[in-house]
């Protein structure tokens, strides 16, 4: 069977509400959303601010639980997993790139990349080698012992990419990865992401405001009023 024919992410009738100021359930941010992503696919999700894009990505990446509905990642029903099991999913199956990169300022570039290996219990020497390779791949081979505070925004984001890949995830989720970058850095990052998708058959889901980035994805979906409008797109 062609791996690309297998769904790696299935979200069915997902509803997500957040509590309001007095602790009662607020309006639905996602309201009956349904989504299916094939393995190896690259997908962009676009929409206006407050439409729930980050919420969708958080649910897909096991960072949050839906109020209702089903989220299946790589065949696992995330809603039925315990907190510990969800952590395992995040550690071994998902790579997450945040808009604000969230690098630990007290650790070097190399150490930041290796942070996820502690959670996964990976072999130390092997992980260090792989981290070096990843840094080389993202073009930061010479910056392994620098602190994040000394890097540019683009360099920090590339460190975040390397960190997201260290445990060989099957899905890479990126939340506004180019949101805080300049044009050149954004383009470079977009090249990197698409290269990863193409070369490693890594499923890539990107939430973005950037039309340029969205266009480079295999499929673009619009999110509004808590639901997706599917449109085709190709790289």
């Amino acid at each position: 069977m062609n791996p690309q024919d297998t769904s790696i992410l299935e979200m069915t009738d997902v509803v997500k509400r957040y509590p309001d100021a007095v602790g009662a359930e607020g309006p639905a941010v996602l309201d009956g959303l349904t989504l299916s992503v094939r393995a190896g696919e690259s997908l962009a999700i676009v929409g206006p601010s407050g439409s729930g894009k980050s919420t969708l990505l958080n649910l897909a990446g096991a960072l949050d639980r839906p109020t209702a509905g089903s989220v299946r990642l790589d065949g696992r029903e995330l809603g039925q997993l315990s907190g510990t099991a969800l952590a395992v999913v995040r550690s071994r199956h998902v790579g997450f790139i945040f808009q604000m990169h969230h690098l630990l300022p007290q650790c070097t570039v190399l150490e930041n990349v290796l942070i996820p290996t502690l959670a996964a219990g990976a072999d130390r020497s092997g992980a260090t080698r792989r981290a070096g390779d990843l840094l080389a791949r993202v073009g930061l081979a010479g910056l392994a012992h620098r602190l994040p505070g000394t890097l540019s925004g683009g360099e920090r984001q590339r460190v975040a990419v390397a960190r997201a890949l260290i445990n060989r995830p099957r899905v890479l989720l990126a939340d506004e990865p180019t949101g805080s970058l300049d044009r050149a850095s954004a383009d470079a990052l977009a090249d990197l992401l698409t290269d990863l998708n193409r070369a490693d058959a890594l499923t890539l889901i990107v939430v973005t405001h950037s039309e340029a980035l969205a266009r480079r994805m295999g499929r673009v979906l619009h999110l509004s009023a808590g639901r997706l409008d599917g449109k085709g797109g190709g790289a």
Partner: peptide, 16 residues
């Protein structure tokens, strides 16, 4: 807090 969130997002168990 954000660091804690980052660690959790990277797969650390809450207990860890």
């Amino acid at each position: 807090r954000r660091q804690i969130g980052t660690l959790l997002a990277l797969g650390y168990w809450p207990g860890t």
